[in-house]
Nucleic acid binder design. Structure first.
Lengths: 245, 245
DNA sequence: CTCCTTAAGAGTCATGTTGACTATAAAGGG
DNA sequence: CCCTTTATAGTCAACATGACTCTTAAGGAG
């Protein structure tokens, strides 16, 4: 904070307190569709509605810390696994009436998960599920907007960063990487052109030595790659049509 | 917030309350240098240090509302003028110990101002000043980081948005627009190439009809332009060297 | 085993954009 | 009147991109 303009002898308890929470837009790819982790609310307001997972920031914890803790709790992944996931602060939502119960300021995050294990039930009664992006109805609170902002941000960052690999397992094929772009952007990309772009961008991916192919489906087996050192794409890999979603 | 995992009968006052503030990185161009609006702290902690302007979010106010209110107070600009300025949420800083006095979560904003009037003293004793970016010493709290993040964000957005016009008066020359890029990025751009890029990007700028030239300095008088309808640049205007600052 | 389908991977070609330059025009200063 | 400065008009080659074609290597159906 600033300290400037702090009233002399300011008493924190003199103000209506603000609750500070985190909300998570946890995204993954399952069967070539973008999925979001949602929880069903068991109590009012919005009882029965789906909502983004999230929770309170604890007194000795940063928003990032709270987000990673919630991410581990909701996905059931080990702390070690969660530590490697891409977690990115989106923005903070602070409209006075966004929660009818009290004044809640929420720091929103986007998290990108490669594998997508079924979420564990967790200790409480609320059920958590992966749902295809867009198939859920209206979400609770302003979570529709948060989720849309997350999608928008991720889509934009695919253009000029190497973020796409965050959706992939440690070793992946170029087809899987292309599928990330196609799914998030909702477009089809030309295979050879995509391949050329990725391979000629230094540090985007690096070839895996061992068995140069992967079995699984039909078609010619594909070579495997790992994420490279680079984090940004210069020049960027722009969406077709030249316009944001 | 989520509502999920909220303890039954949760009492807001049972937790140590969080103070929520806004911090502003107000940027402008003066004499071809990037300047920041800073205030001198009059009390501990960091008494005598320079800090970003900011203040508490009021109980019935959003963070954006608080930011715009503080912006008007600190710059002395009219509410009408401030309403037209570019104000953008950066991110939220929430490390538990960022303010030694109490738990303060701060939503940071970047504001872009064209003209840069001298800041009015304001009602309190603290003095406010425009200072050239980088010439101030260490700022109070984590404001060095906030300011660096603001610079980084603005520099990045110049690449793929029409944000540069936010630094310019309503009517400007292409030389002034180019100066924005050069100053923020700290590079020199080729005049003819910059001109070609701006003029061939539909909606970036539109020519002003009237007197097709502007007097003032040496050299051939330049034509005047206004900001156009477009908000994004496709394809982007990439920084030289291909790497972020 | 053979044909068909699917996807990987190699390569071509025209187009559009960019970076590097050259040249001219129109002002002010000495 | 010459020199400097800045705007504006062009040129040209290198590069990146979009649209295609072709070959290779799997799996599945008959």
């Amino acid at each position: 904070m600033t300290g400037h303009r702090v009233p002399e002898g300011y008493d924190p308890y003199a103000f209506e307190p603000f609750a500070v929470t985190v909300d998570l837009a946890v995204l993954t790819l399952r069967e070539d569709r973008l999925h979001v982790l949602l929880v069903e609310r068991g109590q009012e307001p919005y009882a029965g509605s789906w909502a983004l997972p999230g929770g309170f920031v604890l007194p000795r914890e940063s928003a990032e810390g709270a987000a990673r803790r919630e991410l581990a709790e909701e996905t059931g992944l080990s702390d070690g696994t969660v530590a490697g996931l891409h977690l990115e602060q989106l923005r903070t939502y602070s409209e006075p009436d966004r929660d009818p119960r009290m004044r809640v300021v929420s720091v929103a995050f986007a998290a990108l998960v490669p594998d997508a294990p079924e979420p564990r039930g967790g200790g409480d009664a609320a059920q958590a599920r992966w749902m295809p992006y867009g198939t859920h109805g209206r979400l609770a609170f302003d979570h529709d907007r948060i989720l849309a902002d997350a999608h928008e941000r991720v889509g934009a960052k695919l253009e000029y960063t190497c973020l796409a690999t965050a959706f992939c397992p440690p070793e992946f094929t170029l087809g899987e990487l292309r599928q990330v772009y196609e799914t998030v952007w909702g477009v089809e990309l030309d295979r050879p052109n995509f391949r050329r772009k990725v391979l000629t961008t230094p540090g985007f991916v690096q070839a895996v030595e061992g068995p140069p192919r992967l079995t699984g489906g039909r078609g010619k087996p594909a070579a495997l790659y790992r994420a490279g050192e680079a984090t940004t794409l210069h020049p960027p890999l722009l969406r077709p049509e030249g316009r944001s979603t």
